[in-house]
């Protein structure tokens, strides 16, 4: 479980995150949603230590990440997998090398065992046999899937996904969403997905945190969201004609 307590983050005079507190449980897909500039990605980066929160605590199963030294943070990070918005695959490495990279760096497994694990991860994301392609040879959806394969290579306890659907067509978006939800359920990972994609919200949002102006504005599930009375949330959710029609 991940708990965040009273997180504040500002860049200069601009307060981006303003006292957000929440809990994210394992085995379900936790979504952080909100409009552009609402602070979703900054909150995610505060949780994984890519940004230092100005105030507040991030607890991984009770261990306070914000108060850890460099070595302790490294230990926690080995339990984290992350899918980046742009996939962030290493350009100079093949698909296989990308997945093997954390295994080579942190495990003492034999080459055969590592390769077996890499192949398993690739099969899990339906990319078996694509081992020797370079990221430049992959489509956007394939890059995301390799990103997921790399993120799960070390059997993480926590999975963070930053806008996994951005730049993807609707069908591929659903495939990625379903993959994230399946992996979360299968390995009982604590998964946090940052998104503003309404298909994701309705499809896999078992727990949803809505951010507005850097504050937690609403919390609930995808079943509750349609009947929520919060004005800002409704403005966000039912911005499109399709969603308005769905509500009616």
């Amino acid at each position: 479980m991940i708990e965040i307590k009273n997180i504040h983050k500002a860049f200069g005079d601009h307060q981006v995150i303003n006292g957000v507190t929440a809990e994210f449980h394992p085995g379900i897909t936790n979504l952080i949603i909100g409009g552009s500039g609402s602070g979703k990605t900054v909150l995610l980066k505060c949780m994984v230590g890519l940004h230092e929160p100005d105030q507040g605590n991030v607890l991984y199963n009770g261990r306070d990440f914000t108060r850890m030294n460099f070595e302790e943070r490294i230990a926690i990070r080995k339990e984290i997998g992350m899918l980046f918005q742009g996939s962030a695959l290493f350009d100079s490495m093949t698909v296989e090398e990308n997945i093997l990279f954390p295994l080579n760096m942190f495990t003492n497994q034999s080459a055969a065992e590592k390769l077996e694990r890499a192949n398993f991860c690739l099969e899990r994301v339906n990319l078996a046999g694509k081992n020797h392609l370079y990221p430049s040879e992959l489509s956007g959806g394939m890059k995301k899937r390799v990103g997921i394969a790399r993120a799960i290579a070390m059997n993480p306890k926590y999975l963070f996904c930053d806008e996994p659907n951005s730049g993807l067509d609707p069908r591929t978006s659903i495939v990625i969403d379903e993959l994230i939800a399946e992996i979360t359920d299968e390995y009982q990972i604590t998964t946090i997905v940052v998104t503003h994609d309404m298909n994701s919200v309705m499809g896999i949002g078992e727990k949803i945190l809505y951010l507005h102006q850097g504050k937690k504005w609403w919390e609930g599930s995808n079943e509750e969201i349609l009947s929520a009375t919060n004005k800002e949330l409704n403005d966000f959710i039912f911005a499109s004609k399709f969603m308005k029609a769905l509500k009616k």
Partner: peptide
């Protein structure tokens, strides 16, 4: 700028 350094950091490198 392509977040590859962030990816390294997240892996604990």
């Amino acid at each position: 700028v392509t977040e590859q350094i962030d990816a390294l950091e997240i892996m604990g490198i």
